[in-house]
């Protein structure tokens, strides 16, 4: 028997703000095994980034934040170890990359040196060994002429190259889990394509698990086998990517999938937006958070939180109509796809 690599159980993250508590993450549970690739999809305020940050307690000192639940990584509850031990995990066993690589890199330090520093710290390498490994890592993430570029400062790199540097820093200590928070949102599509392929290749070659946080189903489709959709701090649907495309169950997932103008279609009339806007105060209510925007909502949705229901193999949906919708989907085929 083996423990899962990552086991998140009933995670709650609450920010105390001037205008009252905000339940950014409201009871999220999931597991990941080594080599898994999980896409977390949601809009801003859905709690997808906060979930990732909570795993490593990466919050600003000024944030008044309360985390509850458990995050077991390799059997150790990360929420209950002290800050010093957690620092070993951060950048050691769990690597992380962000949307804007520039803010995560020290602007006054050559990139090779920054990677080497991390190697000395986490892998106990000697000075010259670490420097050589840094160059090797830069080469591995596709940076041409790595010896020369290792000596340059972050701002002499383009956006895509900076993200590569960030990735090489994140994988420097052979993490077992790489968390990528909107890693390509700030990049152009052709650069995004390269970065996504790089992440996919690294996951396979380094045997690490990849958790990719994004608002774009296309990005997930290119890099992840599993996907979970978040809304207002809760998981609303969880499935394998292939399965989700065929059988999106939750009305929110369905809405997300059909509101993006599909590339293959020419102008075919108006889009189908989801009315209203996502709540900004997070979850925490005693109703389905999506009910106000949902065209299928009925009384029960407004009075009780729907539980996660299994609607297929490895497929969960938190909707009172989940079972019913799953049956319809089987009969009608892809419910979110427009008529042929």
């Amino acid at each position: 028997m083996s423990l899962p690599l990552l086991e998140v159980d009933d995670l709650h993250v609450t920010f105390n703000t001037a205008s009252g508590p905000v339940h950014a993450v409201d009871g999220v549970s999931f597991t990941m095994e080594s080599g898994d690739s999980l896409g977390v999809v949601g809009e801003s305020g859905s709690g997808k980034s906060v979930t990732a940050r909570a795993l490593l307690r990466l919050f600003a000192i000024t944030d008044d934040v309360r985390i509850a639940g458990s995050v077991r990584f390799d059997g150790v509850d990360l929420l209950r170890i002290d800050e010093r031990k957690l620092r070993d995990v951060r950048g050691g066993q769990i690597g992380m990359i962000f949307q804007d690589p520039l803010t995560s890199l020290n602007p006054l330090m050559a990139v090779g040196e920054q990677i080497a520093e991390s190697l000395r710290l986490h892998r106990g390498m000697g000075r010259s060994e670490a420097a050589a490994e840094a160059v090797e890592l830069l080469g591995r993430v596709g940076i041409a002429d790595p010896e020369r570029r290792a000596t340059e400062l972050p701002n002499s790199f383009s956006g895509g190259m900076r993200q590569r540097v960030m990735i090489s820093l994140a994988i420097a200590c052979r993490p077992r889990l790489l968390i990528a928070d909107e890693p390509t949102t700030a990049l152009d599509v052709t650069v995004q394509a390269e970065i996504l392929l790089l992440l996919d290749e690294l996951r396979r070659s380094e045997q690490m698990a990849l958790m990719l946080i994004t608002h774009d189903f296309g990005v997930v489709a290119a890099t992840c086998e599993d996907v979970q959709v978040m809304y207002a701090g809760r998981l609303v649907e969880k499935a394998s990517m292939v399965h989700l495309f065929d059988r999106a169950n939750h009305p929110y997932t369905e809405g997300l999938l059909r509101l993006v103008p599909r590339f293959e279609d020419a102008h075919t009339g108006r889009l189908h937006p989801i009315a209203g806007q996502p709540p900004i105060t997070g979850g925490g209510g005693s109703s389905c958070a999506f009910a106000p925007r949902c065209s299928h909502a009925f009384d029960r949705c407004r009075s009780e939180v729907p539980p996660e229901v299994a609607v297929g193999p490895q497929h969960l949906s938190a909707c009172w109509l989940a079972a019913e919708r799953a049956k319809d989907a089987t009969e009608a085929g892809r419910p979110w796809k427009r008529d042929p």
Binding site: L58, T62, G91, F98, S104, L105, N106
Partner: peptide, 11 residues
Amino acid sequence: MSVAVAKRTPD
């Protein structure tokens, strides 16, 4: 990797 921690200072 302490560099990864976003340090937000009140502007």
